[in-house]
């Protein structure tokens, strides 16, 4: 299915690569750090794009293909994001799997995750968090709003993502349990 994690722009792309290669024994040559447009070499399994200079928000991006899924033992995006955010003391946004393009999962350095709403007008350029759908323990300054009555409709299976400190309690429960 592939992995895509949008780390806070202050995150070191190099450190993301180092942690992943050390933890999962990935050949650093197959996990490129830099602008993919300038890459020439063997077929990659994943890459990390550092945030461009001066970029705020969540512009350091890790993306992996099917071989990367295998290399990390089939971890879900949330499990991997939680692990990396704790290890690198950073935060990240990942897709919440629903049809509403403005609803994302925020993962924080303390290992917590929960849904936030980002600015739709700026979404094609940058992730700007407008509000959270539940309080964010490490960021009480983010305004909290009640999710709309029809939020269930955002998700194919009608299951609303949970929030909290356990990354195994949401999405692909059978895999998480294994």
């Amino acid at each position: 299915m592939g992995i895509e994690i949008n780390f806070d722009s202050r995150t070191s792309a190099q450190r993301v690569q180092e942690v992943l290669c050390a933890r999962y024994g990935i050949d650093p040559a197959l996990l490129y750090v830099g602008d993919l447009g300038e890459y020439s070499g063997p077929r990659l399994i994943a890459y990390v794009t550092p945030a461009p200079e001066g970029e705020r928000y969540f512009a350091c991006v890790l993306e992996g293909g099917p071989e990367f899924d295998e290399a990390i033992g089939g971890l879900t995006e949330l499990q991997l994001a939680t692990l990396l955010c704790k290890e690198l003391d950073t935060r990240a946004l990942i897709d919440d799997g629903g049809g509403a393009a403005t609803s994302w999962i925020l993962v924080t350095a303390d290992g917590w995750h929960g849904r936030v709403i980002v600015d739709d007008d700026r979404l094609d350029d940058e992730f700007v968090i407008l509000e959270a759908l539940q309080p964010v323990p490490s960021a009480p300054e983010i305004p909290v709003v009640e999710p709309p009555d029809w939020q269930k409709g955002w998700y194919k299976d009608g299951k609303i993502p949970t929030s909290g400190f356990d990354p195994d309690d949401w999405r692909k429960p059978s895999e998480a349990a294994g």
Binding site: G99, A100, A101, T102, S103, I117, D120, V145, P147, P148, D149, W150, Q151, K152, G153, W154, G158
Partner: peptide, 20 residues
């Protein structure tokens, strides 16, 4: 399903009321 059906098409609604 919390979705809208019209002319055979299903639509959802985002927080601010944007239809998708």
């Amino acid at each position: 399903r919390d979705r809208c059906l019209v002319n055979g098409r299903l639509y959802g609604v985002e927080v601010p009321g944007t239809v998708y």
